[in-house]
């Protein structure tokens, strides 16, 4: 059986196909202003990449903030459930998932069966999300993809607000004008994100083994800063960014 999971996030749309429970392929594209089109595009692009046609996909589940705009999906399921299921599929021993995406961060606690026991999401605020990192990357004129590697070369981590993205941006600009090194500033930015996310994690009662998912999991600097804050090691799968889509595909198998 071929199934598909489509995860429409605020910044990227992801697709994952499974065949008989095995990952067939995944794809990521920018969501842009039209989540419906983004869902269609990422699905069709992955079909083309795998030389498949839509008729060969038996079931589709959509997730993410744009889940209800995926008209061709058989069912829409929230990203909380899909991230829990995806992480359990990739690494069944995982008990907590920290998902940091473009516009929100969430911490999900799962049982031994992968079912969600509890979860917590961030407030309506960009601090502690991928959007925060995007704003900072723009202020520092650094490609976001290089943020993680640059921060590992830091001598120290500079203190930056974890409460407000706008204040933090002006703090970063002040630090640049003071002549502080880019590496130390970026390390401080990562620590700021980690502070915010670890607060959520502690609120819900995070326990290890922990997996980090979402686009921000690709940033080694944030992962390291979070490990330090929580005093626990964090697993990051090669499929971290598409974990929600994989979870949606697993849910499609269960329909």
């Amino acid at each position: 059986m071929n199934v598909a999971g489509i995860d429409i996030g605020s910044i990227t749309a992801k697709a994952a196909f499974l065949t008989d429970g095995k990952i067939l392929g995944t794809r990521v594209t920018f969501t842009g202003y039209n989540p419906e089109q983004a869902g269609k595009k990422v699905f069709e692009d992955l079909l083309a990449e795998l030389s498949m046609d839509a008729a060969s996909i038996d079931r589709v589940v959509s997730t993410g903030y744009g889940r209800n705009s995926v008209k061709f999906a058989d069912k829409a399921i929230t990203e909380i459930i899909c991230h829990g299921v995806g992480a359990h599929y990739l690494s069944p021993h995982v008990r907590s998932i920290i998902d940091v995406g473009g516009q929100d961060s969430k911490v999900i606690v799962v049982g031994t069966d992968g079912k969600v026991k509890d979860f917590v999401m961030n407030d309506k605020c960009a601090a502690g999300t991928g959007r925060f990192l995007e704003v900072m990357a723009r202020a520092l004129k650094v490609d976001l993809d290089n943020f993680g590697a640059i921060s590992l070369k830091a001598d120290k981590s500079l203190k930056i607000s974890s409460i407000c993205t706008v204040f933090a941006e002006s703090e970063v600009i002040s630090l640049i004008s003071k002549g502080e090194s880019r590496e130390d500033i970026i390390a401080g930015i990562h620590e700021s994100v980690a502070s915010r996310v670890s607060t959520l994690a502690n609120r819900v009662g995070v326990s290890d083994p922990i997996m980090m998912t979402g686009g921000v999991a690709k940033n080694i600097g944030v992962v390291k800063a979070l490990e330090k804050k929580l005093g626990m090691s964090i697993e990051v799968s090669e499929f971290a960014q598409v974990n929600g889509a994989i979870g949606a595909a697993v849910m499609a198998m269960r329909l």
Binding site: I77, T78, E79, I80, I81, V85, K115, V116, K117, F119
Partner: peptide, 14 residues
């Protein structure tokens, strides 16, 4: 909406 829907999905045992 996501929080509420997730809560009901948890109740449904997903």
């Amino acid at each position: 909406q996501t929080r509420l829907e997730s809560f009901f999905e948890i109740l449904e045992g997903k």
